[in-house]
Simulated scan of single mutants.
Amino acid sequence: MRGTLPKVISAQVLVAGNGDGTRPERLRTAWREAGFEAGPVVGGTFSVAATPARFMEVFGGKLTADAEGGVLAGSERALPLDQLPRALREGVSLVAFGRPPSFGPRRR
Rank of each mutant, 00 (worst) to 15 (best):
Q12T: 15
V13R: 04
V13F: 05
L14F: 14
V15H: 03
V15N: 02
A16K: 14
A16M: 12
N18R: 15
N18T: 15
G19R: 10
G19H: 03
D20Y: 08
T22P: 00
T22Q: 12
R23L: 15
E25K: 09
E25W: 05
R26W: 03
L27P: 01
L27Q: 02
L27C: 03
R28A: 07
T29A: 13
T29V: 06
A30F: 06
R32S: 10
R32V: 09
R32L: 06
E33Y: 03
A34V: 06
A34H: 07
G35I: 03
F36R: 01
E37R: 11
E37V: 02
E37I: 00
A38W: 03
A38V: 04
G39S: 01
G39T: 01
V42W: 10
G43S: 06
G43E: 09
G44H: 03
G44W: 08
T45K: 12
T45W: 07
T45S: 10
F46A: 08
S47H: 10
V48F: 07
A50F: 02
T51G: 10
P52W: 02
A53V: 11
F55Y: 09
M56I: 02
M56H: 01
V58N: 08
F59A: 01
G60S: 00
G61R: 02
K62M: 04
L63W: 08
L63V: 05
L63C: 05
A65V: 02
D66T: 04
A67K: 10
A67P: 10
E68Y: 13
G69I: 03
G69K: 06
V71F: 00
L72K: 09
L72N: 00
L72S: 03
G74Q: 00
G74W: 00
S75R: 13
E76T: 11
A78I: 00
P80G: 04
P80A: 10
L81A: 03
L81R: 05
Q83F: 08
Q83Y: 08
L84W: 10
P85W: 07
R86N: 13
R86K: 15
A87R: 14
A87P: 08
L88C: 11
L88I: 10
R89K: 15
E90T: 14
G91E: 09
V92L: 08
V92A: 12
S93N: 14
L94Q: 14
L94T: 12
L94C: 07
V95L: 07
V95N: 05
A96V: 13
F97G: 01
G98D: 14
P101D: 10
S102W: 14
S102P: 06
S102L: 15
F103L: 13
G104H: 05
P105A: 15
P105N: 05
R106E: 15
R107H: 07
